[in-house]
Each structure stands twice: as C-alpha cells, then as structure tokens.
Design a protein around this nucleic acid. Structure first.
Lengths: 343, 343
DNA sequence: GCACTTGCGACATTATATGTCGCAAAAAAG
DNA sequence: CTTTTTTGCGACATATAATGTCGCAAGTGC
C-alpha cells in the first residue's frame, strides 16, 4: 500500500509527529506511527530521512545517548503553514499584551513560539522602513493588572495532560492555611483561570467533595498510578455559578435601571452591557442618561457598577441599589473614623 | 545556482509563499519570489508542482478565471510544524476565552485557525475517553465583560497593513458627535486596544495634531495614494501616559499604604500588586492587615482600590484617600437624594 | 554471554523530478 | 481587429533522487 502518495507528504507527516523539545520520539515509534497513517516505509529510509534530510534543513535535534535514537524539534522553532499575514501578526502582538497580565508567565510561554513568530514578521517588515511597530501598538488591560502567580512549567504540563487524558495526579501541595507541604493524589475535574491565578478543581483521593487547588501552590506533580475517579455530570459553568469563585449568579437575568453620566453613556454606546440595552437622554439634567438593560445577576456586573462610582445611579434592582448604598456608607465610615482618630 | 538543496525545502517555501484565502498569488510572481530565495526553477516545474503535487495534497485553491492563475490556501487551513501539544492546546483555549471579551470578534477571528486547531486536537483526544474538555475549562475575565464593538474585517486588514507599511489610508468615518459620515485621509501612527474597543491614532491629512479614531466607526478603509506623513519620535506609551485614554500617570511611583481585610490580603499574597509589596497582620483587629507597596501613580490602580470597596482603607497617598472619600460621599449623596425624593 | 535491536555505509533498482519543445488559448499591445 | 506576448499544459528524454536490501558493528536487555 506504499502508494507514492508523495514523499513530500510523508516528510510533512514526520515533521508533525516529532514533538517540540521537552518531548522526543524514538525512531521505531515514529516508524510505527507512520505506518498507522499509511506510510509503510523501510526503517532504513526513515533513518536516512531523519539524519540526512530533515535534521539538515530543520532545527531538529537527536538524542543519541541511548540506542533507539530520539528526535525532537528545537524548543522555539515554529512554522505556520500558510505563513502569517500582517493583520494576524498584529493581532497576536495585541493578544500577547493582554494575556501577559491574565495568565501565568509559564502558560503564556507555552505560546511564545507563536508570538515570537509574529514579532519576527513585523520586525522583518520594519527592517527597511524603520517602522518601529513596537512603539505603535499597545493593549490597555481592563482593570488593574496584578502580577500573575508563578506556576512551575512541569506542573502546568502534567496537570493539563492529566485533566485531558483523565488521569489522576500525585501532587505536593503547599496549603494556604497551614503553610506546610502535603502530598495528595488528585482526580482532576476542571481548570479555572480567574484574574491572574489558575485553579485546578479536583477530588482528593478517597473523598467525594470537589476542592480548589491553586496551581502556583503545587510544588510538584506527577501522573499517578491510581485510576481516575470521575464525577459524573461535572460542569464547570454550574460550579462557577454556584458561587465557588465569588461569582454567584442568580438563576435568571435581571433588569438593570440606572441614571448614567455622559462619559458612561458614551462608553456603553460603543461597548454595550448587553444586546438589549437602551440609553435615553434625561431632560433637565446636565448630560445624564437613563439606562435600561437585561444583565446577568452576577457579582461581576455589580462590581462594574460600583467601579463607575458617582457616574452611575442604580435604581433597580432594589437589592443592588441597597448593596451599593451600604457599600458607600461603610467606606465613608472607615474614613470618618480614620480622620477623626488621626487628625 | 539551482543546487538541489532538496525539493522538500522548495515545496515548503512555496507553501509559505501562498497566502490564505482573501489573498492570492500569481504563478509568475511565485516563480520570481522563489528565485529570490535561491530556487531557480523552470516555470513548467512550478506549474506542475502547484497543480499536481500541492493542490492535491493540500487545501489549496486556484482562481483560473484569468490567465495568470492565482493560488491561495483555504481560508481555515492551518498546519503547525511542530504539531500542537496538549498543554499548548489547553492554553490556546483559555487564551481564546479571555480574548473574546477583549478584542473585537473580527480580530479574534483572525486567529481562529489557531484556536480551531487547538479545539480539534482536544476533541480528538476526547474521542475515545469522552473527556468533554469543553465542560472542564473556563476563564473568568477580570472585570465585567462588555460586548466588544464590531469591526469590519476589511477595515482591520487595511488599517493594520497601513500602520505597519507606513501608508496613508482613505477612510469613511462616522463621527461620534455629528452622526454624519465624513471622508478623511489618515496617516496612522499607532493602534491602542482598550477594554473592548480599538482605536487608531492618526493625523488627518494636512493637520499636525494626533486624533483618535474608533475602528468600529470606520465604515470603509482603502490604502491611499497620498504619501505617509510621519510624526517623529511618536511613542504610544508616552501618548497613553499623557492621559489620552483616561489613564493619566504620574511621573513616578507612589507608596501605597492601606489597611486591608482578610480576603484582600489573601488575594494579594497570591497575585501581588507589585514586586515590593509587604503585608503584615494588624494586632487587635478582626483579621485586618497592613499593606505597603510601591505602585504606579495611575488611574487603574486607583480604580482597583475603589473596586475593593469597604475591604480596603487607604491611608496614603493622601490624594488617593481624599479621592476615594469624595467618591463615596458623592455616591451616597446620589442615593440619599434618590430615596428621599422617590419614597 | 547471547539473542535482539538499532544505526549506517554501499549498491542496484525503481521512481521521480526537471528542462525542453510544441501547441493552444488567453491577455496585452498595437 | 490584428499582432505579439504571456501562460498553461501534454509529451518526452534525462538526470537525479528515493527506496529496499544486505552486511557489519555497536549498543540493549535478559
């Protein structure tokens, strides 16, 4: 069945089977995988291809310390097949700027070959014209950028692999309360990335309840021998809505009614709160508008409203209005006490 | 010089020269570009390669309505050369979730082949084990996700190209104030993506001042015949610090001092405000801590502090303390008036 | 120590890639 | 509208590269 469906295509397949550096693949394994894909080829040819063709034209390395040689791609090599175009490269640069504040460095690092590729393309473009794109493009994150928690690279790889391949993991975990390291066997059910921290949702071996484990407190992780315990019908959205991350969400949307100042009105006209929002000018006010919108009944919307400070006056739902009012009272109380005691 | 440096490599080069769909490349152009890269090959060979080898093995199309045939890749085809590994695929999924709330759909769409690729890999993995990764992985954005403003795809492509290639653009722009469409020739100097809206910084032809143009209000954009006007020493960071986007920043960092409640202390221990922060327990309080940190003197930090509401009590800098206090007073005033007038 | 696997040089054979030529159809130029 | 140029394509001969086979040496595992 070794139809000459082209050497090119076989090479391409080989290149796709060779993993990036931390990984490696032994020659006989490669031969088998190629056979699975319909390339029945002699071992000798494979050896020749690897050592004479591919590794001379591509940044491919070979670990020849053991006898079934193992092959791998250079850590930072990347090759898009339809090459990157300019708009995509620009998008990647923007994406990287945003993600740097949202995901741990190691996780973003996982994508660094892509970003490097994009920057190289832009650099090449600028080479002639000195366009200095780096001084022209910027992403402003949505809120204050906290410094993302550091995660160990091997941890991320092991945990993500375990989650997707449905395996248990043995971890050494630094508990938040006791400051002591403990060993657990965990059965991963989900991953949630929130703000700048990333959490694994998992059962501890032998227990039925789901717990959160901050990935940056995982000191070490290895795939476990234990069989994986599944929680049937786990749904991360349900879990989040249940309030586990401080984002409790009511069962249905609510109707938000508020008076908003002009800057907020402009903002919302361009990037609406929801599909159904309406904004109408209020007569006899100095640039105030009436906002009505169906929004989810969640913490984030409430925080957004509070973040707008005096530029927004919520009238409904009543519960939000009261929360905001109480909040302001408490804040003021803090400062009133403070100033009387300190001055 | 037509060294047989391998057909494989030439094919690879050809594949990289063929653009993704909206783009296309004519056979003679391809020949020329190949020659530039050292592949001196006969036209006939090129034709054979394209029509018999590449287009049968790859999703490559050909526009044969005009005589110099034009070749292009399928719109959604993607081929990573070291194939995606599992951790990278998971990272891409998380990245997409975050970016969907941060960049206009069209811009994220620019990267969709990458994301599709990642999802396909995860699907394939789950095929046997039914791991349903889609129900296991979630990113919770930092703040309220407003609906990103829609941008026309062609607009994004034209504008990004113009910016990087230092060309002027003719646009039809819907001005915010007058609600009327106007035609301008713009000289792009930078792009800023903020929250969910993206802005072009450019000179209007014939003027010296820099203005902001929201990309979602650009109705049409084409590369202009006008030569591009450069602004010397333009630096987008300087521009932003100048306060143009409401993010005025003081010249130097300030020392933040505040009392924080336990939940905030925990948050900041994991994702610090800055490299130099210190948190110490306050005696005789019910779980309050003293925070000291060097932070930038900018709007975003201030907003973040205000967002923490009664869980944080700022003592220094004095200006921030006063701003927060005034803010709370104004908010309370709103609701006091409101409740007395309405009830 | 022994069977087994793996890498590699050499060689013959097959398969493939490449340039050349001629023709036809389509653009471009006049 | 005609002429010239460009482009695509089938055919063919030839050079070139790719592939399987064999033998040997060196490592690996029992």
């Amino acid at each position: 069945m070794s139809e000459p469906r082209d050497t090119l295509f076989r090479y391409l397949t080989m290149l796709q089977l060779i993993p990036r550096f931390p990984g490696r693949i032994a020659t006989p394994v490669l031969k088998e995988k190629l056979a699975e894909r319909g390339f029945n080829i002699d071992t000798r040819s494979l050896q020749r291809d690897l050592s004479q063709k591919l590794s001379t034209q591509f940044p491919i390395g070979c670990d020849d310390s053991q006898k079934p040689y193992r092959w791998y791609f250079d850590r930072d090599f990347q090759c898009q097949l339809p090459a990157l175009d300019v708009p995509s490269a620009l998008t990647l640069v923007l994406a990287e700027e945003y993600l740097k504040g949202l995901l741990p460095p190691v996780v973003v690092g996982q994508l660094s070959p892509h970003f490097t590729d994009a920057r190289k393309l832009l650099d090449d473009m600028s080479a002639n014209g000195l366009s200095q794109w780096a001084r022209k493009v910027r992403a402003i994150p949505n809120g204050k950028a906290l410094i993302p928690a550091e995660i160990n690279e091997a941890t991320w790889q092991t945990i993500s692999q375990a989650l997707l391949e449905q395996k248990a993991v043995d971890v050494i975990y630094l508990s938040r309360t006791s400051h002591s390291e403990k060993a657990f066997t965990l059965h991963p059910q989900g991953i949630v990335s929130r703000h700048s921290a990333t959490y694994l949702l998992a059962h501890v071996d032998g227990f039925k309840d789901l717990r959160q484990f901050a990935l940056h407190r995982v000191k070490q992780a290895t795939l476990s021998q234990q069989p994986w315990q599944e929680q049937h019908d786990f749904d991360v959205d349900e879990y989040i809505k249940g309030g586990a991350f401080g984002y409790r969400q009511g069962p249905s949307d609510v109707v938000l009614e508020a008076d908003i100042a002009k800057p907020v009105a402009w903002l919302l006209q361009e990037t609406p709160l929801s599909d159904t929002q309406s904004i109408e000018a209020l007569p006899d006010t100095d640039g105030w508008y009436r906002l009505t919108a169906h929004v989810p009944d969640d913490q984030q919307t409430l925080w957004w409203l509070m973040g707008m400070g005096p530029n927004i006056k919520v009238t409904a739902p009543h519960a939000w209005r009261e929360t905001i009012k109480t909040n302001a009272e408490q804040m003021l109380a803090h400062y009133a006490i403070e100033s009387s005691s300190s001055s």
